[in-house]
Amino acid sequence: MTFDTRATEMEIKVSGLTKIFGDGETAVTAIENADLSLEPGEFVSLLGPSGCGKTTLLRIIAGLETPTAGGVQVRGRSVWDGRTRSTAATRPVSMMFQEPRLFPWFSVLDNVALPLRIAKMDRKTRRDRAARICETVGLKDFLHHRPTALSGGMRQRASLARALVTDPQVLLLDEPFGALDAMTRDALNLELMQVCARANVTTMLVTHSIAEAAFLSDRVVVLAPRPARITDIVDMPFDRPRDLDLQQSTQFQSMVGRLRHALSEGA
C-alpha cells in the first residue's frame, strides 16, 4: 500500500523499498514495497512490533544496509546505486543507536567531537563546537568525565550530542531511550524535542512506545509485523511546543488509543 504522495520537496523519500535477507528457502523478507516521504523539519516515528523491520529501514536510509529493491533519496540524492552507497547523500544524515557506543578511554568532550576529528576539523574548533552542543543537552558540567562515570541517561545525552555535532539535516534515532527509566526518558524526550525544533532537523524515530511516538511526532507510521509494510500513517494534532501535561489530556489518550488500534489492525 502506498501512502503520502506529496508535491513539496522532500527531505527523505522512500520508494518501493524491499529488503530480503538470505536467499532460497531460508530467505527472510524484512521490508516489502515501502513508500514514505518526510518533509524538511518534520518529526516522524516508526511504530511496530519487535522484529518488524523498523531498524532495517532506518539503516537503509542511513546507508548502513543495502536494499534489495526500491530506493531512498535524502535531499534529492539517491542513497544507493545498486550496492554502492553515495557519500554525498548520507553526509547530511546522523544516526543515534540504542546503545551509547562511547569510547571509554575518551572524555565526554572528545567522544562528542569524534565525528569532527574524523572530518579533520582542527582541534580547537571541533572541541569548541562539541562543548556548545554538550551544553545544549545538559552536559556542561561533565565535559571531562569518562563515560564510565556517567549514568545511563547522561551517556545517552552524550550520544545525542555526538549525533548533533555535525549539524545534520536528517537525524535517525533507533530507540535511543528505550533502556532508561520512565522519568529519565521523559526528561530526554523533552530535550530531544526542543533540540530538534531549534535545529529544524528532520527526525525519524524508531520506538516501541505508543505514548512516546504520539508525544514526539508530527506523524506516526504504523508498520505491520515482518515483512514491514506501512499499514497506516496517523497525524498528531498537537500544537508545539509540547510539555508532559499533554499526556494527561483526553485528546492525547484518544490518539494513543487510535495508534494502539492501528497496531492491532495491522497485526
Results as ranks from 00 to 15, higher is better:
residue 67 P to M: 03
residue 50 S to A: 05
residue 91 R to L: 13
residue 147 P to T: 10
residue 266 G to I: 10
residue 160 L to N: 09
residue 144 H to D: 15
residue 104 P to T: 09
residue 125 T to C: 11
residue 141 D to E: 15
residue 239 D to S: 14
residue 62 A to P: 01
residue 250 T to E: 15
residue 136 T to G: 02
residue 220 V to D: 01
residue 263 L to E: 08
residue 56 T to Q: 05
residue 62 A to S: 10
residue 150 L to M: 15
residue 12 I to G: 02
residue 136 T to M: 15
residue 175 E to K: 09
residue 163 A to K: 02
residue 78 S to K: 14
residue 104 P to I: 12
residue 118 I to W: 07
residue 49 P to M: 13
residue 4 D to L: 08
residue 249 S to D: 08
residue 229 R to E: 02
residue 258 R to K: 14
residue 131 A to K: 10
residue 112 V to W: 00
residue 199 A to R: 13
residue 93 V to F: 00
residue 267 A to P: 01
residue 103 F to D: 07
residue 61 I to P: 04
residue 161 A to F: 02
residue 237 P to E: 08
residue 123 R to Y: 02
residue 217 S to L: 09
residue 147 P to L: 05
residue 20 I to F: 01
residue 108 V to I: 15
residue 120 K to M: 04
residue 251 Q to S: 15
residue 224 A to I: 03
residue 238 F to S: 02
residue 192 L to C: 00
residue 174 D to E: 13
residue 54 K to A: 07
residue 84 T to A: 11
residue 176 P to C: 11
residue 8 T to F: 07
residue 24 G to L: 10
residue 180 L to Y: 04
residue 224 A to L: 05
residue 257 G to M: 04
residue 224 A to F: 04
residue 38 L to H: 01
residue 12 I to S: 04
residue 180 L to I: 13
residue 226 R to I: 06
residue 264 S to P: 00
residue 74 V to P: 09
residue 99 E to F: 12
residue 108 V to G: 11
residue 146 R to M: 14
residue 110 D to Y: 04
residue 240 R to F: 09
residue 141 D to I: 08
residue 37 S to A: 15
residue 196 C to G: 09
residue 227 P to N: 12
residue 202 T to H: 06
residue 19 K to W: 01
residue 136 T to W: 11
residue 133 I to C: 01
residue 247 Q to C: 14
residue 53 G to P: 06
residue 106 F to T: 00
residue 57 L to A: 14
residue 167 D to M: 07
residue 116 L to N: 08
residue 139 L to E: 07
residue 202 T to M: 13
residue 213 A to F: 08
residue 110 D to W: 03
residue 103 F to S: 06
residue 72 V to K: 03
residue 170 V to Y: 01
residue 199 A to H: 10
residue 250 T to K: 14
residue 243 D to Q: 06
residue 122 D to Q: 14
residue 74 V to Y: 01
residue 229 R to C: 01
residue 203 T to F: 03
residue 30 A to F: 11
residue 64 L to A: 05
residue 143 L to F: 13
residue 145 H to P: 00
residue 198 R to A: 15
residue 42 E to H: 13
residue 233 I to P: 02
residue 178 G to D: 04
residue 254 S to G: 07
residue 52 C to H: 06
residue 78 S to N: 14
residue 226 R to T: 05
residue 221 V to Y: 06
residue 144 H to S: 10
residue 168 P to Q: 10
residue 80 W to Q: 09
residue 157 R to S: 09
residue 54 K to R: 07
residue 196 C to Y: 00
residue 14 V to Q: 00
residue 148 T to I: 07
residue 229 R to A: 00
residue 2 T to H: 13
residue 159 S to H: 03
residue 206 V to I: 15
residue 115 P to I: 10
residue 234 V to Y: 02
